[in-house]
């Protein structure tokens, strides 16, 4: 596998495209964004300088921290709720379905990931509206009408639509990979179904369970469609703050401050979660 030490043009034809493209259009823009957070906007133009003005202004605002905590809280909540809702379905998919049935179900779950989330959010807007189908059906039972949009509930419906397929996929993969003889052994040794679940199945599938929750967290943390179109922007999340600051305020450097705080938070959470996911594994 180890290619010869001397320069091999053939190897570089295949190695360089990624380095060039992601270097020029992924790494450099991010570095530039970080540098830009120290620039100033004068007369609607950015001027290169090195001051902490934007940082002091953004981090000194109560509104920024309100947005920070609500975003973090919702991402944690979505990770927990999505994991809890997905788990029974994943257990069923992993242990009760044939291999081909499971593969078909997982292929179906990949499809929504590649369909317009914007249109899906709009459909929820109509479904959950005050006079929409859900309230009409509940009204037939003598309930409601309930206000579901422009609330934390509305945003959560959006988050779950976004993340559930991926969480189910992660969980099912790790559950299906468990050695079935482990579970039989637990049963033979007299463990109840509950004890087998808690003491054998969950620890064995830990990696997939944690990674599923982590991806739910990351996607919720960075989502702007759910809080904007279903959550009513009140309170604003960090993503809404970035968009408002960029689009209407033309204050790109201040938006960059928010973006960097988000990246640092995601990095810290992801590192901790990956460590937890692989702890106790060779």
């Amino acid at each position: 596998m180890n290619a010869s030490r001397k320069f091999d043009p053939y190897a570089y034809v295949w190695r360089l495209p990624l380095l060039l493209w992601q270097g020029a259009f992924f790494v450099i823009p991010l570095i530039f964004m970080a540098a830009m957070s120290f620039w100033l906007v004068k007369n609607y133009r950015m001027e290169p300088t090195f001051v902490f003005d934007n940082w002091e202004r953004m981090l000194g605002r109560g509104a920024f921290w309100d947005a920070y905590w609500i975003t973090l809280w919702r991402a944690v909540l979505a990770g927990v709720i999505a994991s809890a809702i997905a788990f029974p379905a994943s257990l069923f998919l992993a242990f009760r379905l044939t291999n081909s049935g499971r593969r078909f179900a997982l292929l179906c779950l990949i499809v929504p990931f590649f369909t317009s989330f914007l249109v899906r959010a709009y459909a929820w807007q109509v479904i959950l509206a005050e006079s929409g189908p859900v309230n009409a059906a509940l009204g037939g039972l003598g309930l409601g009408p309930f206000t579901m949009l422009n609330s934390g509930f509305g945003a959560m419906v959006g988050y779950l639509t976004l993340v559930l397929p991926l969480v189910v996929i992660f969980q099912t993969w790790s559950l299906a990979a468990i050695d079935k003889s482990l579970i039989e052994a637990a049963g033979n040794l007299g463990a109840s179904a509950w004890a087998t679940l808690v003491r054998v199945i969950i620890p064995a599938a830990k990696t997939g369970l944690v990674l599923g929750a982590l991806f739910a967290f990351i996607m919720t943390f960075g989502d702007f469609v759910s809080p904007f179109y279903l959550g009513g922007s009140k309170p604003p999340t960090l993503t809404i703050l970035i968009i408002d600051t960029t689009k209407s305020g033309q204050q790109w450097p201040r938006a960059a401050v928010v973006a960097i705080v988000m990246i640092l938070t995601l990095f810290a959470v992801a590192t901790a979660a990956v460590k937890a996911a692989y702890r106790g594994r060779g």
Binding site: R15, L18, Q22, V27, P29, M33, I218, G222, I242, I263
Partner: peptide, 24 residues
């Protein structure tokens, strides 16, 4: 190298959008 190859989709799109807008 592999991190560079696989990381971009994990970055929130709003952040990538801002960085792209500024750089482009």
């Amino acid at each position: 190298y592999l991190a560079l190859a696989l990381l971009p989709p994990t970055l929130p799109l709003v952040i990538l959008g801002l960085a792209m807008l500024a750089w482009l």
